[in-house]
């Protein structure tokens, strides 16, 4: 029972992570792949924030009379990661637009057919 109460958060985050991973590796549409990649990414953020959480802790903004705060360090790392994540998403979507220009499709199977790869 202690194991479930202490770890349900991590388990659900991993299930969401795997849903994103499945979208990335099994779907052929490039826009959907990037949506899956973003789900994967957000679930990693949730894992970090879960690790930084302290039971009954407060938001880490210093205030008189509050002694217990959550860990601010994962928050800082994830703030950076969110912004970098959007930059990489933009780059991936730009590549999708270029692939559409070059091949006329954003379906992976049709791109493989045109290249005679696979």
């Amino acid at each position: 029972m202690d194991l479930i109460i202490g770890h349900y958060n991590y388990w659900l985050v991993i299930i969401i992570m795997m849903a994103g991973f499945y979208t990335v590796i099994s779907r052929g549409n490039l826009v959907k792949k990037i949506a899956g990649l973003n789900i994967f990414q957000v679930s990693v953020f949730m894992l970090y924030i879960s690790i930084g959480n302290v039971k009954d802790g407060a938001v880490p903004i210093i205030e008189k009379g509050v002694t217990l705060y959550s860990n601010p360090l994962p928050h800082v790392l994830i703030l950076t990661a969110i912004v970098v994540g959007v930059a990489t998403t933009a780059l991936g979507l730009a590549l999708v637009v270029r692939i559409k220009e070059a091949y006329g499709t954003i379906e992976e199977d049709e791109i493989h057919n045109q290249d005679h790869s696979l």
Partner: peptide, 10 residues
């Protein structure tokens, strides 16, 4: 989960 700044950014 007490991460207000992260929530704003997200």
């Amino acid at each position: 989960m007490d991460a207000a700044d992260v929530a704003f950014t997200e």
